[in-house]
Computed example of a mutant assay.
Amino acid sequence: MVELYEIWGKADFIRGCDFIDRQVIPSHLTVGYHKHSNNEEMYIILEGTGTMTIDSQEVKVKKGDMIKNPPYGEHGLVNDSNDNIDLLIIQMNLE
Rank of each mutant, 00 (worst) to 15 (best):
R15W: 10
G50I: 05
M42Y: 12
L46H: 07
S37W: 08
G32K: 03
V24I: 10
L29I: 06
C17D: 08
D21I: 02
S27G: 06
K35M: 15
L29E: 15
F19V: 01
K35G: 11
E47M: 03
H34Y: 12
E40V: 09
G50K: 00
I25D: 03
D21E: 13
P26R: 07
H28F: 15
S27P: 08
I20K: 07
I25H: 00
K35V: 14
I45F: 06
Q23S: 10
M42C: 11
I20F: 02
I44G: 08
G16S: 04
L29N: 14
L46A: 07
E47W: 00
C17N: 14
G16W: 04
C17A: 15
R15K: 15
L29M: 12
M42H: 07
T49F: 12
H36N: 11
D18H: 15
I20R: 01
E47P: 00
Y43L: 07
H28K: 14
I44P: 05
I20C: 05
H28I: 02
P26N: 02
G50Y: 01
G50E: 03
G48Y: 01
Q23I: 14
D18G: 12
H34A: 12
H36R: 11
I20Y: 02
E41R: 15
I25A: 02
G48E: 04
Y33S: 00
E41G: 04
G50N: 06
R15A: 13
Y33C: 04
P26V: 00
Q23M: 15
Y33Q: 02
T30E: 15
G32D: 06
E47I: 00
H34W: 03
Y43S: 04
V31G: 13
K35D: 12
F19Y: 10
L29W: 06
T49A: 13
L46Q: 06
E47N: 02
P26G: 05
R22C: 08
I25G: 03
G16Q: 11
Y43G: 00
D18V: 10
H36C: 05
K35T: 13
Y33D: 02
I45H: 00
P26H: 07
E40Q: 11
E47K: 07
V24Q: 01
C17P: 01
N39I: 11
E47L: 04
M42W: 13
N39A: 13
Q23N: 08
N38K: 15
V31C: 13
I20V: 09
Y33G: 00
G50R: 03
L46R: 01
K35H: 07
I45D: 02
D18Q: 14
Q23V: 12
N38Q: 13
E41M: 10
S27Y: 05
G48R: 00
N38M: 13
H28V: 04
I44S: 04
H34K: 12
